[in-house]
């Protein structure tokens, strides 16, 4: 295996969900949740995926994990196209890719002690007997900062941040190489957010795990990510390094997102470009640029021409004609 080869590469991935109506459940339309997405994740790297609610970021995460089947496009894991893999083919790959969820309350089985929850993951690896598993569980809890003696407790006995740590321990149990973090800190207090993000960073340094970090908070994404992809209505709008997103945002949507980050300095006179309008329904997206209805720079041409991703500089891609 080539070390410089990206661990995961997504090419032109699409997922359209049918909308069924009426007595005979005929297909009345398609929700274009993910409409042609390309990116890659390198070894030990974090890719941030930002966008507002309903733009398809979570769907991208589930597509990568093959929890739902992509309609089109290629999904290359270490160079193998896994987009057509059946659930059976995926079995050996399951321990390579793991997931951390947004909702720390729904992500742990309320009827299992947290020790059992982690053990379930270890069980799938095989070749580990009961005592060894118990030892591993304790190690994993220590790793994420939970007292190993808490093994026998149920999830409702923990706070949100602690549950998120348990979720991370579960993901780590199978020693994955890629973790999809699906808004792992959105449901937490700011101080806890920092703890979880630092924990994720530590684990990355220790084990060289790659992350795909999905979030709606550009600040958090900018802090943890090496590169950032900004998504809008199922498409990536801007795709570059974290520094460039903050220093030189090119797409008007990225600029609007950045200006919406609250400034802690009360005296600063930052100009806020609020976006007008709403996200158009993914059931009936506008032709041409998806962002046209809310863009300050919109021109006639934007409304008809399909906009392609353009390379602006090394590793900086933007889907906008005006840049």
């Amino acid at each position: 295996m080539n070390a410089t080869e990206p661990i995961l590469k997504v090419e032109g991935m699409k997922k359209h969900f049918p909308v069924q109506r009426g007595f005979f459940r005929h297909v009345a339309g398609w929700i274009k949740a993910v409409d042609g997405v390309d990116f890659f994740i390198n070894h030990g790297e974090t890719l941030g995926l930002v966008g507002e609610s309903g733009c398809g970021k979570t769907t991208v995460g589930r597509l990568i994990l093959k929890l739902i089947e992509p309609d089109q496009g290629r999904l290359l894991y270490r160079g193998d196209d896994i987009s057509q893999f059946s659930q059976n083919d995926m079995k050996p790959l399951r321990k390579e890719m793991q997931v951390i969820f947004q909702d720390p309350y729904g992500s742990l089985n309320p009827r299992m002690t947290i020790g059992q929850t982690i053990e379930e993951g270890l069980r799938t690896i095989g070749n580990i007997d009961g005592n060894e598993r118990k030892e591993r569980v304790k190690e994993l809890f220590e790793l994420v900062g939970i007292s190993p003696s808490a093994c026998g407790l149920y999830p409702h006995e923990f706070s949100g941040g602690q549950r998120q740590r348990i979720g991370i321990a579960r993901a780590l149990s199978v020693e994955p190489t890629l973790i999809i973090c699906d808004e792992p800190v959105s449901a937490l207090d700011v101080s806890i957010q920092a703890q979880i993000i630092n924990l994720l960073n530590e684990l990355q340094d220790k084990f060289g795990i790659s992350y795909m970090f999905i979030s709606h908070d550009l600040n958090v994404v900018g802090y943890i990510s090496d590169r950032v992809a900004v998504m809008y209505l199922g498409q990536i709008m801007e795709y570059t390094t974290a520094e460039k997103i903050f220093d030189n945002p090119l797409h008007p949507y990225t600029q609007a997102l950045l200006s919406a980050i609250p400034d802690p300095d009360p005296d600063s006179l930052k100009e806020i470009h609020t976006l007008s309008g709403d996200v158009p329904s993914p059931l009936d997206p506008p032709p041409g640029c998806k962002f046209q209805g809310r863009c300050p720079l919109v021109e006639d041409q934007c409304k008809h021409e399909e906009i392609e991703m353009r390379r602006i500089s090394e590793g900086h891609h933007v889907r906008c004609r005006k840049v």
Binding site: V99, D103, G106, S107, N109, E120, T124, G167
Partner: peptide, 13 residues
């Protein structure tokens, strides 16, 4: 639809 079931699927159980 709950996340812990999704997590179990992702673990390959």
């Amino acid at each position: 639809e709950l996340d812990f079931v999704t997590a179990a699927k992702a673990l390959g159980i």
